Simulated assay, not measured.
Amino acid sequence: MRSPIEMPLDPMLAKAVKEVPDPSTVKGGLAFEPKWDGFRGIVYFDGDEIEIGSRGSKPLTRYFPELVEAFRKQLPGPCVVDGEIIVRTGSAGSERLDWEALSQRIHPAESRITRLAKETPAAFVAFDLLAVGEESLLDAPFRDRRGRLEQVLANVAAPLHLSRQTFDMATAERWLEEFEGAGLDGVVAKPVEAVYSPGKRIMQKIKHARTADVVLTGYRVHKSGNGVGSLLLGLYNADGQLMNVGGASAFSDKRRLELIEELQPLVQRDEAGDAVKGEGERSRFSAAKDTSFVKLRPERVAEVAYDQMEGWRFRHTAQFVRWRPDREPRSCTFEQLERPLAYDLEEVLS
């Protein structure tokens, strides 16, 4: 495939900040866009062939044939477009992003790929233009790249979309609150004078920060074989059933070893005195991984930080904050969780 820029290219990234930044503090100002919760994809089109690069080294092209067809039909000419692959779910007026359906699209079987392309078709939200024709735009400021992108996508229709943008801080703050109800991940702030810097965290991302009190249900041993790799977390549902809601990790080497000793009194043991093990859920992403864990008696409560829920689970890995010896495990229910008000995804895309 011919391309005026390197293939594959590492996408430009964003660093996390706690609140929407003031555009007046950045030379040239900031542009704000919704943070789409999907698969990052860089689309290379040479006028004939299509290749969809991912944030990693694995191309996504074969998994989204419906997008390949849309790109070939709708893109006006050779170009390289940066954006996000998403899957929409729900009925008209109450659509939202569906991460679970999107993750199911990565499958080795060709027959399943073909079926899911019809059952859960993907969409693509474009937010940057890296090349057009034989011209590389990597050294152009974002202001210019965005203007050229609007020209290239002037006549596209679903499943291709142009991401919304605002220069107004108050609007970005409103988006942060409202768009979560449609399954979005937050807001991204982009310096309008910045060139495209592959692999570097030039942009800023603002996501929701929340905490919850959860029951400790087990732990996985670190991949090194030493210490705790992650804590397994649970919440009680309305029927009194303890549900797995995710895990917490990112401990230092020292803390991992301390946790092994600290959690020993809670380890469930069989008649022979050996630790009782459980087996975690497997997916195509974890098929080769050890998903076993040490079961703990559900007697300890921890406070964790999380950003959002995906169904009944934390969307991303939670962060351990502190132990809560003052809380009874049975008091740790889903009722404590903050639920965003519903917001129609179509309103975000239009």
Score class of each variant (00 low, 15 high):
V301A: 04
A14M: 00
A131Y: 09
I42M: 09
Q104D: 14
V80L: 06
E262P: 09
H316R: 08
D344W: 04
V156Y: 02
S224M: 04
E178G: 03
G186E: 06
D82I: 05
R300H: 15
E6T: 14
V81A: 11
D239Q: 13
T211L: 00
V245C: 07
L75H: 12
Y63R: 00
Q165V: 15
L129N: 04
E258Q: 09
S252I: 14
A275R: 09
A209W: 10
P191I: 06
E134Y: 03
E135W: 00
N244H: 12
A14W: 11
Q104M: 01
D274E: 15
K223N: 09
K254I: 13
I85H: 03
G147H: 03
T217P: 11
A16S: 15
P8M: 07
Q204N: 13
D82Y: 08
R72S: 12
Y219V: 10
D270T: 08
L341C: 11
F167S: 06
L67M: 04
S249T: 15
Y219R: 10
P340Y: 12
D37N: 14
P329S: 13
P340M: 02
S111M: 06
A302G: 02
R55F: 06
E261N: 14
E119N: 04
S292E: 14
E19W: 05
L67H: 01
V188M: 13
G147P: 06
K289P: 04
L233G: 00
P21N: 02
L216R: 03
L233M: 07
V187K: 01
A172K: 05
P21V: 02
Q264D: 15
L184Q: 05
P340L: 10
